[in-house]
Amino acid sequence: MSTAERTAVAYEVDSLGVRLNSTDGPRQIVRDISFDVAPGEIVGIVGRSGVGKTTLLRVLGGLLAPSSGTVFLGNRAVHGPPADVVVVFQDYDNALLPWRTVERNVALGLEGRVPRRERRSRVERALGLVGLDGRGKEYPRRLSGGMAQRVQIARALAVQPTVLLMDEPFGALDALTKATLQDVLLDIHAQTRTTIVFITHDLDEAIYLSDRVLVLAGAPGTITRALPTGLPRPRDQLATRELPGYLRVRHQLWEALRADHG
């Protein structure tokens, strides 16, 4: 593939495999994974627990080196965390610095890189994007789970990444908070056009947010299905989920996951 073609994709994953050392010797976690992600696309990866979703996301984020295959971001191979990719983790409790205020948490990735004045305006903008205006002086401990996760998303947005990788970002939240944050994320996407790849075990979340849903299944895990959702944007928690197209995709994904006896 030529360089010109490569720049048309955000991510290009080819024949990716990961072996990790476990207590009983090396174990193949995922194998033979190939897919592309287009710039500005939202891709959801679903799969059962333990199928290797987090492993795959860590490889995309440069936090884990693959054992075989290649990962390209734009036209550059990923070796270590790339400059314009940020990972958002599920456990906001551990991922935020409890001794820093919200705004200083959000500024973490900018310190020493961006002049003070610009830093301030970027932090303010990031907090605005996640709906936390005016909460900058509070400490994470005093925030609810949903608010804390917004802080983590804001911290990622502040560095203005081209790709946002999210590891079960709303997995620890209650249903209503989850729905709110899904819409916050879609708003952010509409405003920033950031490419988003996220993993989830919630099928409905995957369909609702994504342009395309990938099913990771088997042991070792591999991608067994890739379904474009074809749903119109902006999306709506009620109307979108009642569309025939939504139900059709849901049906197909369920069948793909049911076939995977984990």
Partner: peptide, 8 residues
């Protein structure tokens, strides 16, 4: 992980 993904 946070330090790495933010490239500190």
């Amino acid at each position: 992980d946070v330090a790495r993904t933010l490239r500190l």
